[in-house]
Design a protein around this nucleic acid. Structure first.
Lengths: 92, 92
DNA sequence: TAAAAATACTCCATAGGTATTTTAT
DNA sequence: ATAAAATACCTATGGAGTATTTTTA
């Protein structure tokens, strides 16, 4: 992954986990396995060099860095949504 | 790739190609091969079901759909940049 | 002890490279 | 004839799965 961008699949996993605060629940919503979500978040944390969630046992809570990132992620995902809609309007 | 998101690597290739209008030049800027850029654009076009560039021989020109997408892409890439900067501020 | 996250593998899709072909100056 | 894009083929990285281990409510 080039250093200027972020992996959008990981961002989607991140945003979902941030909302539901459960790896297994997020996995269900994403149609993935708990393992895949765990990897995605771990990968994103490694990529950014920042801890995004605090795992105290089975309690998953977002960190301050995570809260910051979530704001950007919401913008990014919304813009991707709009882009898809616009492109769909070009038919076929 | 889930149907709600877009591949950020392909978006970066797209934005670069849109700027320089040359696959080989874009490849140089991205530290990729011409082949990789060609694949990326083709993949993005297939994913969106839209033609993003007109290739008349060695002339590469962006389409109307491409122009539309570029606006979204600029927002997305800029937001990713800001996200990285914010995360970098959290140190390590 | 039961439910949830982490981890250790395995597999496969695909991103990206090299080499070649095609095409338009 | 040459420079650039497309294409064929190959490789390797990593995304995602299954199974298992670890952990704490």
């Amino acid at each position: 992954m080039p250093p200027v961008i972020l992996d959008s699949r990981k961002l989607l996993a991140f945003a979902t986990l941030a909302r539901v605060c459960s790896f297994t629940q997020a996995a269900r919503e994403l149609s993935l396995t708990q393992s895949a979500v765990s990897h995605a978040i771990k990968g994103l944390e490694r990529d950014l060099g920042v801890r995004l969630f605090e795992r105290m046992g089975r309690k998953v809570t977002i960190t301050e860095a995570g809260r910051q990132l979530l704001q950007h992620t919401d913008v990014i995902l919304a813009e991707m949504q709009h882009a898809r809609e616009d492109m769909a309007a070009f038919g076929e």
